[in-house]
Design a protein around this nucleic acid. Structure first.
Lengths: 197, 197
DNA sequence: GACGGAATTCATCAACCGGTGAATTATGGC
DNA sequence: GCCATAATTCACCGGTTGATGAATTCCGTC
């Protein structure tokens, strides 16, 4: 039956929720119709409310997390406590927006532009400033790379692949167990680096 | 022009090479025709030689790497050297089959079955046996999870996202810099684990 | 040099994709 | 109660996907 439904419209919100789930599971490619179906709504509603699938994705990921805000308190921390502060801030943020995080990461797998944004986001805006602040030497790039490898691995296993026991672990547990590594990469000694790597 | 080409046929091999590149860049979804195009060949050749796109993917990933073979020598190592041995074995294997690794990981993002296989592969067949062998206590799951987080992060940054300087780093450099973390997760002390995690 | 079979292209298929525009129905202000 | 407006569905479009079957051309063998 065509025409407006009775009662107040919750369609827009239902689409957003369905989209967050589907995007988190499968990324942005290959699904508008399933989102509509899961929301119990005609696919045309997506174009109506969000213009296009890209618009919907932007709306889903719109609650922009500014990495500067997240790491700002970390930069004021004591050097010996930097890793714990950083991990606490990151895990707290990610736990609060796990589905959006998964949606972005999964979509970035197939989208070069988005992948570049994620890279900038993680490496330049989050990891690098912290490393620059706390590194006891000038091996910024090395420390940033190592840090990034541990942090992206945490994101991948806990939030994307959802491997247990990490996926359901308490935030404090995660911080306790991974902080030593992060602290080592941040301020610990590094192996001698042969000339051209 | 229809009909057979002159000279000996290299089509099958050309398709395989093109497929490895394309799959490594974009995963298995959304491309048969580009593979054919890159191989300079009609898309129908893929069905002709490999039956279907799935068959082509299987052919590309057919050089099966048995994780048991890779970690077998590691299990004989000295406990103090286990991390270096493990990382050396892994990095060597991955470097030799980087495009296949990337193809599998990228495809697993969208394929639940494949994702499960990857999980089993990494967690049960590779990480777990090593942890079981070297762990000084019974916290196998914890150590396996931590190890997996660092190892998947390495795969992600070095082989999939190709973030520098990790992507171009010498294998020895990678082993030198990450082995301490791996050794720590494998045999080092862990924080006290509160009851229900 | 004729001929069976393999290799290759072409035209084409149904299915699905994201998106558009018109038609239909309810809502809410006046 | 009227009516502009918003909400919703429907039919449909051009484009792309993976795959099929027939037609064409070359190779190897006898």
């Amino acid at each position: 039956m065509s025409g407006r439904r009775r009662g107040p419209s919750t369609t827009r919100q239902q689409i957003l929720e369905a989209a967050r789930e589907v995007f988190a599971d499968r990324g942005v490619d290959g699904t508008t119709r399933e989102i509509a179906q899961r929301a119990g709504v005609d696919p045309a509603m997506i174009a109506h409310y969000f213009g296009s699938k890209g618009g919907l994705f932007q709306a889903v990921t719109a609650l922009q997390i500014d990495p500067a805000d997240v790491i700002a308190p970390v930069l004021d921390a004591d050097a010996s406590d930097a890793a714990r502060q950083l991990l606490t801030a990151l895990v707290r943020t990610w736990d609060a927006h796990a589905s959006v995080l998964s949606a972005v990461v999964r979509s970035a797998t197939r989208n070069t532009v988005l992948a570049g944004q994620v890279r900038t986001f993680v490496l330049e805006r989050a990891v690098r400033p912290v490393v620059t602040r706390f590194s006891p030497d000038d091996r910024i790039d090395t420390r940033a790379a190592l840090l990034a490898s541990q942090i992206t691995g945490l994101v991948l296993t806990r939030y994307i692949l959802r491997w247990e026991p990490l996926a359901s672990a308490d935030p404090d547990w995660v911080v306790d167990h991974i902080a030593p590594t992060v602290q080592g990469y941040l301020t610990g000694p590094l192996p001698d680096s042969p000339a051209g790597r």
